[in-house]
């Protein structure tokens, strides 16, 4: 067990190093949410409620999306590519445990996710007067949302990595799913103003719950009544994320492919 963790940490460090060396993807991953914040923050200047700017609403959604981008999207694209390159097959032939591989992946996801969140919060605070979470209980919610959200996103990314037939096609399969979910889950628009069927559909998937959870962290509690359910639904968010984590883990264990054949 110690050996598995030791090698998992080594892989995490190595994967982070490899990620940092791919300059284009670093810039894209870290800067893209900030660019979107500038666009949306500059277009929508109205307040959604007294003291709640659109930027404030949007940042909550972007942090939630960041969890999906760095976990689900990144892994569901990267793993099929590694399968094509023979990386995974080579690792399978060494004493390294598969669990160490997954630990490595979750480390690189966590590192990029934290970097993305910190940059987004800093830019929001400097340019858009973003309010930080106002109480320790909100910080606590923020923490468990990030932990559960990134675990959920990571296992679902690993589970989904068996779907694309090749590394080349992976991005074309994965990216549209993420973009559609972002629209449906109230990242780019105010969720309560979306059509009912869209809200229902989004409620199946974790992103909607992460987004709503992040709003409970970044928006005043008075805003809760403006949610579709008239509440932040913290308990339900916890339950649904946990269910997806269990489902994603089971699917990953059953379907993970070590080579293209």
């Amino acid at each position: 067990m110690r050996e598995i963790i030791r090698i998992g940490l080594l892989r995490g460090a190595l994967e982070t190093k490899q990620f940092m060396r791919q300059r284009e993807s670093v810039v894209f991953t870290l800067a893209f949410p900030v660019i979107l914040l500038f666009i949306f923050g500059s277009v929508f200047k109205d307040n959604l409620a007294p003291g709640v700017t659109f930027s404030q609403y949007f940042v909550a959604g972007m942090i939630a999306s960041g969890l999906v981008n760095t976990g689900f999207q990144q892994l569901a694209i990267m793993i099929p590519m590694e399968r094509d390159f023979g990386t995974i097959k080579r690792l399978r032939g060494t004493p390294m445990s598969p669990v160490s591989y997954f630990i490595g992946k979750s480390i690189v996801v966590t590192v990029t996710m934290l970097a993305q969140t910190v940059i987004l919060l800093a830019v929001g605070a400097i340019f858009f007067k973003l309010n930080m979470p106002s109480s320790s209980s909100k910080w606590l919610t923020f923490l468990w949302l990030i932990v559960l959200g990134s675990i959920c996103s990571t296992v679902l990314g690993i589970a989904f990595s068996s779907v694309p037939k090749s590394g080349r096609g992976a991005s074309a399969v994965v990216s549209p799913i993420v973009i559609i979910l972002q629209f449906f889950s109230g990242v780019f628009f105010v969720f309560s103003s979306l059509p009912h069927w869209m809200q229902q559909f989004a409620a199946i998937f974790p992103l909607k719950w992460l987004t709503q959870g992040m709003r409970s962290v970044f928006l005043p509690d008075t805003f809760a009544v403006k949610e579709v359910a008239k509440s932040w639904e913290g308990g339900r968010t916890l339950a649904i994320l946990s269910a997806w984590i269990i489902a994603g883990t089971l699917i990953s264990l059953r379907t993970f492919k070590w080579s293209e054949k």
Binding site: G86, G93, P95
Partner: peptide, 19 residues
């Protein structure tokens, strides 16, 4: 234990380009 005692050189690999 098994994989500690064997070594494998696969046919074609193209990984770890950035290391």
């Amino acid at each position: 234990e098994f994989r500690n005692r064997i070594g494998i050189v696969l046919q074609s690999t193209n990984d770890a380009a950035d290391l």
